[in-house]
């Protein structure tokens, strides 16, 4: 039995899934389709989730590697009563998305960045987000949204 702790809930899976990339376990077995498939080789960032708070590319990590660790997906960011995080809210306020396909991965990357560095500079944002492709080219808004979220987190802290 493979046990994953996904968004605070223990999910039990067949051992047959041990070698399946975490991405496909999340999407197909658990129905958490917010995490996206983009390249399959961990160079686009669409599949980014947090593993014990660190951003990882779920398309290239076997589910077994997440066994017993905390997995946070985009579906697990908002509070139980639906309140969005400052990062999610900034994405809405600044109308970041075009097609929106990469944005859940971008939001997970941004969330991890702000947890480790609450006041990142532009260069630090660029470095942290360089692994996430936005094919529509919304990078200027992503950077701005991260800064807005950082400001709002600062005020509430």
């Amino acid at each position: 039995m493979l046990r994953l702790n996904v968004n605070g809930k223990v999910r039990e899976l067949s051992d047959d899934e041990a070698s399946t990339p975490l991405l496909w376990v999340l999407r197909d077995a658990l129905g958490l389709t917010g995490t996206k498939f983009g390249c399959g080789v961990s160079i686009c960032g669409a599949c980014t989730v947090l593993l014990d708070g660190e951003p990882i590319r779920s398309c290239s990590m076997p589910a077994s590697a997440a066994s017993g660790r905390d997995v946070t997906t985009i579906e697990g960011l908002a509070s139980e009563d639906g309140e969005l995080t400052p990062v999610q809210q900034a994405w809405i306020d600044l109308d970041v998305a075009q097609c929106g396909y990469c944005q859940t991965g971008q939001i997970m990357g941004a969330t991890a960045l702000l947890q480790s560095n609450p006041k990142p500079s532009d260069d630090e944002i660029d470095a942290a987000m360089a692994g996430n492709i936005c094919r529509c080219g919304t990078y200027l808004r992503i950077r701005k949204a991260i800064k807005q979220a950082a400001g709002n987190m600062g005020e509430s802290a």
Binding site: T73, I74, E75, D95, A97
Partner: peptide, 8 residues
């Protein structure tokens, strides 16, 4: 769709 997008 932005609200639904950011919630995945």
């Amino acid at each position: 769709d932005n609200d639904a997008l950011v919630r995945g």
